[in-house]
Amino acid sequence: MRTTTTATAITSGRPGGWRALLAVAALCLPSLAAAKLEVVTTTEGLASLAREVGGDRVDVASLSRGIQDPHFVDANPTLAVRLRRADLLVDVGLDLEIGWLPGLVNISRNAEIQPGGRRRLTAASAVPVLEVPTGPVDRSQGDIHPAGNPHFLSDPRRAAKVAEAMAAKLAELDPGGAATYRARLESLEKRIGEASTRWLAALAPFKGTKVVARHKTLSYFFDWSGLVAAGYLEPKPGVPPPPSHLADVVEMVRRDRIKAILVENYYDTKSADLVSRLTGAKEVVIPGDVGGTREASDYLGYVGELVRLVTEALR
């Protein structure tokens, strides 16, 4: 519409105006192509969900990669350039990105992606959160997440809730696409539902089975799958395992006949190797997020990989 108005204004001038019109039209082309909503997410898991929901109407970029430890992403100023142009910023929340995101948002000059802003969606606001501390909190407990456990995308039910919130937010920002977002959300929910039935059937024999994990990154996966965390390689969140603690873990693994030790592939596997060697339990290196391995190329691929690796190890 805007182009037409410009055309009228220009063609009312001299014949040479046609050339100007072409130039203007050419200039408009990239801006028409750029009419897609620019969605920036902090993690690849969120990016995959945003792509599923947004389809062709969005361009999605993640600030971190699935092979990175999401707790230790660098506050690289070049990331602020992407935030400056963002039509929507989706973050995990619960202080997962506290060490790097707030400063980048502040220098991005994009007022609407500030916390609580119209173009900010904090995924945690859409899900029931586990491990919310109810008593006093301090760092003698390790590098804990004082607002609750932020690693909720390993639970497909919660991922569906996040996708729902994304669809609602995208529809609010781009009302013309509301029907598309709703349809794509329904399709995604259907696929997650069908896959979940399959996954849960595969996991059913292992309900209540104890496993060991490196960090409390899998609490939501356990909550969904029915597996149980018998213990962690880390004595406290973010604290590296000292020998005394690993000795406890080895004793526990032997006593409870635990068959699997789960470690995200961004962690050093030294302590897991050791416990595995001393006990015979299998060390299972899992993707930490979408993009963590080649197989985990999108959200369904990621959860599928988790289920496959865990069930193969426990079989």
Binding site: M1, R2, A34, A35, E112, R119
Partner: peptide
């Protein structure tokens, strides 16, 4: 202001 691309140009104007 930036980011008006999500509204129809008419409505935005």
């Amino acid at each position: 202001p930036a980011g008006s691309g999500d509204q129809a140009p008419d409505a935005a104007a």
